[in-house]
């Protein structure tokens, strides 16, 4: 291929990409930079000309705010409570759903279906299940003679309730991704392990788990980012309460920006939240580079 032709091709690739890129940059990179800019102002939402530059004050205010640190703790609770169970539960389900048995197709469909339903719709149903007086969960507790709890209305159980709903809604997606990872593992590897006398656990630990590590990494990252950004189920199930028990940083940010109109302060929080997501993703990628086995 001659150079002139190569250059022509590069130019056409740029040309075809440019409209999409331009729109994309205008709507993602530009707002991201604008958020950075707003975060240095005491921003007046209604009248921008009244905004005053205050440097890093929003950040110092944020980092010394007990509410903000509390929201980070709540976010950590949500991530730690939902991601590991979501990932390993999905892995177990995926392995089970790869084995042939009657009704497998139906079960695959069943576990995936909540993922395609709107959170705003299914959370209405779950509010019924969580209902302290007439809900299913308290009826079940009563059946096994355990004390009944307030679920989303109790400070202590609101977060576990949201986590339970989130797992129900989202685990099917992880299952499918794991199933797609499992299908790419050559079956000869498992057969070879079994010929060498490996049992089911050894086969999983020495063959499936290492071969699956790129998929696991992908699922962990997607779930962590998703949990850090989660908003709708908090809005519909708990509204951040009771008494801030479920006010994650994402929810706190929304409140500050769209309920209290503390725009500059919310912008500073957005920057910090983005930094946290970026750093976590980077760390997970680096850790995986040391550990994962690439095909």
């Amino acid at each position: 291929m001659n150079r002139r032709r190569k250059r022509q091709e590069a130019i056409s690739a740029y040309l075809y990409l440019s409209p999409a890129m331009l729109i994309f940059l205008v709507f993602t990179i530009a707002p991201a930079l604008f958020v950075l800019y707003i975060s240095t102002f005491n921003w007046n939402f209604l009248n921008q000309s009244m905004s005053t530059f205050i440097g890093l004050q929003n950040y110092t205010h944020l980092l010394t705010s007990a509410n903000f640190w509390h929201s980070l703790l709540i976010t950590l609770y949500f991530v730690v409570g939902s991601v590991p169970i979501g990932v390993f539960g999905a892995l177990l389900l995926a392995i089970l759903l790869m084995k042939p048995f009657r009704g497998r197709g139906l079960l695959r469909l069943l576990f995936f279906i909540p993922y395609v339903t709107p959170i705003v719709a299914t959370s209405i149903v779950w509010l019924w299940l969580f209902n302290p007086q007439f809900g299913l969960f308290n009826a079940l507790l009563q059946l096994v003679h355990l004390p009944q709890i307030g679920w989303v209305q109790s400070e202590r159980f609101a977060m576990p309730s949201v986590i339970l709903y989130t797992l129900w809604h989202g685990i099917g997606f992880n299952v499918i991704i794991f199933m797609s990872g499992l299908t790419t593992i050559p079956s000869e590897l498992g057969e070879a392990a079994r010929m060498d006398g490996a049992n089911a656990w050894q086969e999983f630990w020495h063959v499936t788990w290492p071969m699956l590590s790129p998929t696991t990494l992908f699922v962990v990252i997607i779930n962590t980012v998703g949990a850090l950004q989660a908003f709708t189920q908090f809005f519909t199930l708990t509204g951040g309460g009771p008494i801030d028990a479920t006010t994650t940083t994402s929810f706190f940010l929304y409140q500050q920006a769209f309920v209290f109109y503390h725009t500059g302060y919310a912008a500073a929080m957005a920057v910090v939240l983005f930094a946290i997501i970026a750093v976590l993703t980077f760390v997970q990628l680096r850790l995986s580079r040391m550990r994962t086995f690439y095909q």
Partner: peptide, 14 residues
């Protein structure tokens, strides 16, 4: 990069 932007954070400029 666009996948990792928390949507709440860009709502105001958007």
């Amino acid at each position: 990069f666009g996948m990792f932007i928390p949507y709440q954070s860009v709502l105001i400029p958007l």
